[in-house]
């Protein structure tokens, strides 16, 4: 049930969270590792002689896994207790639906939730074991972009290798774009000449129109490359313009409100 009193959403350095769900924060400190990339939307050359496994879509299983995720999110248990209670259910689901995108989603939930093992020091090891199994059996899954969303469970070195392999092996533009995004943020955004790093260039170029949530990779890359400097957001500064769209998709601008006092409210219905 939604409460009419808003919950505070907070950012703990790795991710933002509220109650039993968590949302990846976009800004994660990563280390840039050189990775051979295949730019453009061309499919990667398949070098393996054996046939790669294909992940099936099963609508009924998709419905069931969504229900299970919702159930876990709405649980009244604490984070760690909820993870422990639901882990066997997701494992069973994955076993019962092998070879489907629904299984992939269950495995991705298990990977994401290894976050709750971090206090025990086994998070990244557990996450990587699950991920290796996932990538071996479902290299062409269309949901592997979620590995970038859930990147906080991996070490820096694991991330670099993982995103590199997604770039190389995934046939999907949205998975490759996500991998570029993870890699783009892992190093300096721009070089000495002010040029965006190669991954941001990919996001501004061939992947600019690929959907990122309800926006595009081009738009999100642009915002990372052009953050407002602190002095532009300080008390006494003229607020930077915001141009965007409203709840109906209609264009709106902050400067439309010039002449009135504005309470600019960053909010969400959490």
């Amino acid at each position: 049930m939604r409460s009419s009193v808003r919950r505070m959403l907070y950012y703990d350095g790795m991710m933002t969270h509220t109650k039993n769900t968590f949302i990846t924060a976009a800004a994660l400190p990563l280390v840039l590792m050189p990775v051979a990339t295949a730019h453009g939307s061309a499919l990667p050359q398949v070098t393996q002689q054996h046939q790669q496994p294909v992940t099936r879509v099963d609508d009924e299983a998709d419905r069931l896994i969504k229900e299970l995720i919702t159930e876990s999110e709405e649980s009244d248990l604490g984070y760690v207790e909820a993870y422990k209670a639901f882990k066997p259910k997701f494992e069973q689901f994955a076993a019962d639906h092998r070879g489907t995108e629904a299984e992939v989603r269950a495995l991705l939930w298990l990977i994401q939730q290894t976050w709750w093992l971090r206090a025990e020091g086994t998070m990244s090891e557990a996450a990587m074991a699950l991920t290796e199994d996932l990538l071996e059996r479902h290299p062409k899954s269309k949901q592997l972009d979620l590995l970038v969303e859930f990147q906080y469970v991996f070490t820096k070195e694991q991330r670099a290798a993982l995103f590199g392999s997604l770039l190389k092996d995934s046939p999907h533009a949205h998975v490759k774009a996500a991998a570029h995004f993870g890699l783009a943020k892992s190093g300096p955004a721009k070089n000495e000449d002010g040029e965006p790093n190669e991954h941001y260039q990919a996001l501004l170029g061939p992947y600019a129109n690929v959907k990122w949530r309800e926006s595009t990779y081009g738009a999100i890359a642009n915002s990372y490359l052009n953050p407002h400097p602190a002095e532009a957001l300080a008390v006494g500064a003229v607020a930077p313009e915001i141009e965007g769209t409203n709840h109906e998709g209609k264009p709106m601008k902050l400067s439309d409100y010039r002449g009135t006092v504005i309470m600019l409210d960053f909010w969400g219905n959490w």
Binding site: L9, T16, I23, T24, A25, A26, A27, W212, R213, E214, S215, A219, I220, N222, S223, I242, G244, T245, N246, H247, G249, M252, D265, W267, G268
Partner: peptide, 12 residues
Amino acid sequence: SSFFDGGGTGGP
């Protein structure tokens, strides 16, 4: 009115 910021935290 609200700007719709890309569909999640960490929007543009």
